[in-house]
Design a protein around this nucleic acid. Structure first.
Lengths: 215, 215
DNA sequence: CGGGGGCTTGAGGCCACTCAACGATAGTGG
DNA sequence: CCACTATCGTTGAGTGGCCTCAAGCCCCCG
């Protein structure tokens, strides 16, 4: 059990905490909804989806977590959503109890946890607006802009997730995702690169933004 | 400026904090999205809706707050949603800065804030599943069960909000809310009491629960 | 008593869904 | 290394659930 700086990227966490790494294959479950929340996680490589299921299999993905993101911070005994690796993924994990022990005496640690939870809440609030009130086109535009911000390198956005995942994130059918992306390609808003259909270049960010008006 | 126990219902807050009361008329704005978050609020009488708007007027209500509920706790400089009184409403409010000053030295206060924020996040996560993946019927069933739990007294649920608010909470048209409620009345699942259409008695909770299956 | 907003109901239409078929891709095992 | 197969992605056809538009009713409230 190593003692070193945490990977949480903030002075508040530059304290000795036990941590270790773990790898998951594509599609593998990291934890299930309702399971005891023993660790919190940070993505080192790969990507993670967190979702809820209905009994008949309908799925709503609440968030994707990409390299550097922290997830699994529930502040309660059990996980609220299931977490799975979207692709082969490596995470580092921190025992929740060691964090709690630390936080019990240290307000700044709680402040940091509170900030992270608040950011999750803000994302969820924005996503409720998307799910409840936006058209399929607007959902796709918002998704592209979000992912563009989070993982575009050198002008190319390499999506780790497939159409099905995108669909379950946006609350539409997977065919709808395909259709909308095809339309945007035909209209010159974006282009596909390579023969996997997951590498995208945005040609007309203006157009996307015009479909994703806030307030 | 009075000094007394806070109304937040927990030992962690039984500390001297400045607070005061304020009243809002039906439909009046309590704070707007983007405004500085100076206070946190607790509902004394009435009900509050918090929502986001799109530029063309489409609205998504993220949550209703009933008597006893705390809202406006943003943990950041600005409010993320707009808050309005659904009916004539009285709130008590606490200066955020006095809370922050207190919390700065006191981990238990942060722990309490974290717990409240986590509950908001859980509600949002459940609501994303509802908005993205449930049918109109399932949405209405879930809404009735939620409100039944939160505000039924003596077997009667007196909804403070109208059909429009319910619709914008569930991500459907207000006519759809009316239609579904009419169907449920015709099928004997519920009854309307009085001549306002906002007092409801649930006759067949089983049926509703069967439409609101978790996992 | 008059006006206005909330609620209901009907008619018709459309957006996104389901179902289906096929091509392309990547992973698997011989 | 290559054939095989499962999965993913695309596209079309047709349907249907919910939306929009519209009209009428009922309650409140002024």
């Amino acid at each position: 059990m190593l003692m070193r700086d945490t990977p949480l990227g903030d002075r508040a966490f530059s304290l000795p905490i036990a941590l270790s790494a773990f790898s998951y294959k594509k599609g593998q479950e990291i934890y299930g909804e309702g399971e005891p929340a023993r660790y919190i996680y940070q993505v080192r490589h790969g990507a993670v989806r967190r979702y809820k299921l209905l009994s008949d299999g309908r799925r709503q993905i609440g968030a994707f977590h990409l390299v550097g993101d922290i997830f699994g911070l529930e502040n309660s005994d059990a996980h609220h959503l299931t977490a799975e690796a979207v692709v082969a993924t490596e995470v580092v994990l921190i025992q929740r109890e060691s964090l709690e022990a630390l936080a019990g005496t240290d307000a700044p640690v709680y402040r940091k946890l509170l900030d992270m939870t608040t950011r999750n809440l803000q994302h969820a609030e924005n996503h409720m607006l998307l799910l409840g009130r936006k058209s399929a086109t607007e959902k796709i535009a918002a998704f592209l802009l979000e992912m563009d911000e989070r993982l575009t390198k050198a002008g190319i956005m390499a999506l780790p997730m497939g159409r099905r995942d995108i669909a379950d994130y946006l609350g539409v059918a997977h065919e709808t995702v395909t259709r909308m992306l095809s339309i945007l390609r035909d209209e010159g808003v974006l282009d596909f690169i390579g023969n996997t259909q997951r590498e995208i270049v945005i040609r007309d960010r203006q157009w996307l933004a015009s479909r994703d008006q806030p307030n």
